[in-house]
Every structure is written in structure tokens, then in C-alpha cells.
């Protein structure tokens, strides 16, 4: 948070704080990030003095860690492959990645295919959202 605030503060100062018209674009961000720097310092001091938050406590562990990483990985993969293989295929891959840990593989394939096709139909045909598609149009 301190790093974030410091960066924002630095950049804010590069904008005009005041212009001929009145207050400039950098004024409010500079105030805010300055305030955030003070708060972050306070927070660091408080966490060292009173309640130490261990990194181990915040990071997921064991089975939970695997699940969280799978979820995140599936979204990243979706973003990467959707422009090339289209929404439906990408969604099937994404859902299958998550479901395979909990269901038998054939159930995983079945459920992810059914959901993806249903959603494609709803969003593409009913709500007219231009979803990314492959050469075959889905």
C-alpha cells in the first residue's frame, strides 16, 4: 500500500497542482496519496506493534491453495485463448479445469459443454453481446 501510495504521489506531483483556471489535475490525487502514505505508515507501525499479520496466514494453504490457483489460472487461460478459439471453446476449457477436481471427467466435460453453449446462446442471441468467436462462428 505504501509503495502504491508513493508511486501515485510521485506521479501526481508531475501534473499541475494549480493551473491558470484554478486547481489542477494533480491536486486531489496528491492530497489523497499523501494521506494514504501517512495511513500506510501508521498501519505498518500498528501491525508491528500490536497484531502481527503473518504472510502465511494470508496465503492459502493445502487443498484451498490448489483450488484458488486453479480458479485464477482458469481465468488467465480464458483471457489468453478466447480471442483465438472463441468464447464457447474457451469457456468449456475454463470450466473443465475447475470441475475436474470435483467430478468424474465425463461429468466435467458434459457440464462445462452444456453451460458454455447455454450461456453463448443467451448472451449472443438473446442479449446480443458480441462475444469473441472462432472461424466457425462460436
Amino acid at each position: 500500500m505504501l509503495l502504491f501510495a508513493g508511486t501515485i504521489f510521485g506521479i501526481s506531483l508531475s501534473y499541475d497542482l494549480y493551473s491558470d483556471l484554478g486547481p489542477g489535475p494533480g491536486l486531489f490525487p496528491a492530497w489523497l496519496s499523501g494521506f494514504l502514505i501517512i495511513l500506510s505508515l501508521f498501519y505498518i507501525w500498528e501491525s508491528i506493534k500490536k497484531e502481527v499479520i503473518l504472510l502465511q496466514k494470508i496465503l492459502p494453504k493445502g487443498k484451498g491453495k490448489k483450488k484458488v490457483l486453479t480458479l485464477l489460472g482458469s481465468i488467465v487461460l480464458f483471457i489468453l485463448i478466447a480471442p483465438y478459439i472463441g468464447f464457447t471453446m474457451a469457456a468449456i476449457v475454463m470450466l473443465f479445469m475447475i470441475l475436474i477436481a470435483e467430478f468424474k471427467w465425463y461429468w466435467g466435460v458434459g457440464i462445462s459443454t452444456a453451460i458454455s453453449i447455454l450461456l453463448f446462446l443467451v448472451f449472443d442471441s438473446f442479449l446480443h453481446v458480441p462475444l469473441p468467436v472462432n472461424a466457425f462462428g462460436f
Binding site: 480458479l71 481465468i75 480464458f78 469457456a91 475454463m94 470450466l95 475447475i98 470441475l99 470435483e102 467430478f103 457440464i111 462445462s112 453451460i115 458454455s116 450461456l119 448472451f123 453481446v129 462475444l131
Partner: peptide, 14 residues
């Protein structure tokens, strides 16, 4: 929830 949350996730992405 093992079925529900993947569905909610893909709907959120969409």
C-alpha cells in the same frame, strides 16, 4: 457449491 461457484464465475466473466 462445487457446481454453483464455477457457474457464477463464468457468468461474472461474461
Amino acid at each position: 457449491t462445487k457446481l454453483l461457484f464455477p457457474i457464477i464465475l463464468i457468468i461474472s466473466v461474461l
